[in-house]
């Protein structure tokens, strides 16, 4: 069940949309904001509010990389693996983070603290290698600064 606040926020988005399905991404993001991901139940509720079938909305939800249809940790690490970051040390950073947290790409730590994802170019090539944790951008990230960055997130 969506909360009253979620329904209200989605209604607000709908006011600005010419057709209800145009609010799909915004509405999914409303749900994801508090819950971290979009469950099947949430997807059905949002679909109903947007006058879409669950399948129609799922086709949209699964297309976009940053709508999560599986549970993620409290914080999502998006590590850029595109060419500039790759050439400036992505593989070493990945190995380091992966060893420290005990997870690979697409996995979540046992304590639910972090999910690690590969990211396509973050638009920070002058700060390569770059990564984002939730909405915050870091770069250049070095093996020395990894601990400090991760320690900011509990």
């Amino acid at each position: 069940m969506l909360t009253e606040q979620e329904k209200q926020e989605i209604s607000e988005e709908l006011k600005h949309c010419e057709r209800p399905e145009a609010a799909a991404i915004e509405a999914l993001r409303v749900v994801q904001k508090k819950r971290g991901w979009v469950s099947d139940a949430s997807l059905r509720d949002v679909a109903a509010q947007l006058s879409m079938t669950p399948a129609e909305l799922d086709a949209v939800a699964t297309f976009y990389s940053f709508i999560f249809r599986k549970p993620v940790g409290r914080h999502v690490i998006a590590l850029c693996d595109s060419m500039v970051c790759w050439s400036l040390g992505h593989d070493d950073l990945y190995k380091l983070i992966s060893t420290k947290l005990g997870i690979g790409y697409g996995e979540t730590t046992g304590d639910n603290r972090f999910t690690l994802l590969p990211a396509s170019c973050l638009g920070a090539c002058d700060r390569a290698p770059a990564m984002m944790v939730d909405d915050e951008l870091f770069g250049p990230v070095t093996p020395e600064t990894i601990d400090e960055i991760l320690s900011k997130y509990s």
Partner: peptide, 11 residues
């Protein structure tokens, strides 16, 4: 939608 690897000018 600046997502081309190597591009960071629009940011």
């Amino acid at each position: 939608d600046e997502m081309e690897p190597g591009a960071f000018k629009d940011r």
